[in-house]
Design a protein around this nucleic acid. Structure first.
Lengths: 336, 336
DNA sequence: TTGAAAGCGTTACCAT
DNA sequence: ATGGTAACGCTTTCAA
């Protein structure tokens, strides 16, 4: 193994000088810097991560807790993961993948063993049970999602309440009076997943404010569930003209099913989808969309947690404003 | 921070004894062991990962290189990832998530910095360009997928050639004479993804052996592509009675599209799907399936790499035998 | 069965 | 602007 001592010898300087060249924590003469950098390249030197961690109490690793649940839409999860990994690498950090099956002990282990410097948590619930553990870790934490009581933990997410409002407003502005929401799987609501409740409240609240008749149903990701759900929507809201779909997993199936039943989009029925931007393009009709900005959220999560590590930031809650991109799936309601 | 010295003092033993209690590398009297373990629990001691890595040159971390591509089906990728993480934890290892955007340097960095002990690589191509780097790392590597020339690297995957043969045999045994394959996205073939070519060769080869007329088409994951692909299949093989779908992303769309066009499954057309087991259950017809055993593959990958780390194993190529689970989507062909 | 002590490769403080 | 040298917390050899 090539060590810092090898580089130092090769460059004719001391080990500490090599270290300082690498960290930039003190000024180095141009000449010395060049020689050291040349030696580093020539020898193919890479600092030993463990030694570094031991000496500096910094691992340059971020732990990311991902959900293993099957009721959450995997492609969406993966977008967040990708964004976090990419952003982390841009800041010279690596990402350790954690799941929840170890429970609180897993978090304690990672934090106490100094395997990672900080923790990012996905799949946050309204009454997030992990908050006490996370607070006890003495390490920066960022939740991707916003619990009812963040309790001094940083959070970042799309403002799902505003996102729902945006959807409803869009439909209301077009003149729709009877609208419906197809939301996430019942399982997602049942365990109180934070974004689902926030969106639902935004939907019903705004509908009430705008004087619209509104119904909401959850929908499991199976063909039968979609059919039942569409049945229920049409039963509860017989002359529905506006539909909000906040469920990436069933979006395609919902659209086919509606078309199968003879509803033309948007002539008979306007549809607004809530999903990552690039997901909305793969359907026959270009959808009117409120985007889930997974890239921004992931990047912000990383930046927030790194700022905390630098001691330069207090915990904060960041809700990203929704943006609605008009497509061809919404139009004024049909005159009846 | 609680150190091994704290535990040693608390238990009235030396630090080395605590270390040996933890590692089990020498015998400890029952009494000492109890006292040490009690102290560990009471103080909440967790060994410092960096210190450990430095002293033992073992990080207990496995690096996993995942594809960021969008042409590969994300839920399938995630199943492998999940399986790897779970298995790794069962063997007291953590998983570091790597992507390919750093290129070969990323692999060198991770290996040379001793951030991870070994590397698992997903999304393997037939002419895998990463093989030279991987060989140069001096660390155990397991490829999840099999390149044309593994060159002394360990590999594990479903035997896709045999899997295709199994599909064709099943249809041939039922009496089908004209069959078709809907394979992965063109992009997957173009970059020579290992499993795609192996499956395709198994398909055409076995069809020839069995004397069946066979056509094969790739299919991008969009509604239009599916329609075109189905068109092409029906044009090239007008009286097709057996269809193999090796493309999780379009499976549902293909089924709907066929039904929309009046093909009853399996009365008019038998369909065999190649996909993870649990994916096959979410359709209206329970599908005849050749399962992609992501759990087994991920677990084996971890076990193989750990065995190499223990020095107890040479590189090996493991191809898992396919298993066909009969569903209600295949039947004898209609009499014409 | 246990203890003492020498590393492991960095960082960062104290000098100069 | 640079060098020397204690840490950092653990593993493992050598001794007893």
């Amino acid at each position: 193994m090539v060590t810092i001592a090898d580089v130092a010898r090769d460059a004719g300087v001391s080990a500490s000088t090599v270290s300082y060249v690498l960290s930039g924590k003190r000024s180095i003469s141009a000449d010395t810097r060049r020689r050291v950098e040349a030696s580093i390249r020539r020898l193919g030197y890479h600092p030993h991560a463990g030694a570094r961690a031991l000496a500096s109490s910094r691992t340059n690793v971020l732990a990311l807790v991902v959900p293993l649940r099957t009721d959450i839409h995997v492609p969406v999860v993966m977008r967040f993961v990708t964004s976090v990994v990419t952003s982390a690498r841009e800041h010279d950090h690596d990402v350790l993948l954690l799941t929840n099956d170890e429970g609180p002990d897993g978090l304690r282990r990672v934090a106490a063993s100094a395997i990672a410097d900080a923790i990012l948590v996905m799949d946050v619930e309204a009454e997030e049970p992990r908050i006490p553990v996370l607070q006890s870790l003495l390490r920066p934490v960022v939740l991707i999602g916003v619990p009812d009581d963040p309790a001094e933990l940083s959070c970042v997410d799309l403002d799902f309440h505003a996102a729902a409002a945006r959807c409803v407003d869009h439909l209301a502005d077009l003149g729709h009076e009877r609208i419906a929401l197809i939301g996430p799987s019942p399982a997602v609501y049942e365990r109180g997943t934070s974004f689902a409740g926030r969106f639902l409240r935004g939907f019903t609240g705004t509908a009430r404010e705008r004087g619209l008749a509104a119904v909401a149903h959850s929908c499991a990701p199976s063909y039968e569930a979609v059919r039942e759900c569409v049945d229920k929507v049409l039963a509860d809201q017989p002359d529905v003209t506006g539909l909000v779909v906040h469920n990436e997993a069933v979006l395609g199936t919902v659209l086919s099913e509606l078309q199968r039943r003879g509803h033309r989009i948007p002539a008979d029925l306007s549809v607004v989808a809530v999903c990552p931007e690039d997901m909305a393009v793969s359907y026959s009709v270009p959808l009117t969309t409120v985007a889930i900005p997974s890239d921004d959220v992931g990047r912000l999560a990383v930046e927030m947690v790194l700022r905390q590590l630098d001691g330069a930031a207090a915990p904060e809650v960041r809700l990203l404003s929704p943006r609605l991109s008009p497509g061809h799936s919404t139009a004024p309601p049909p005159r009846s």
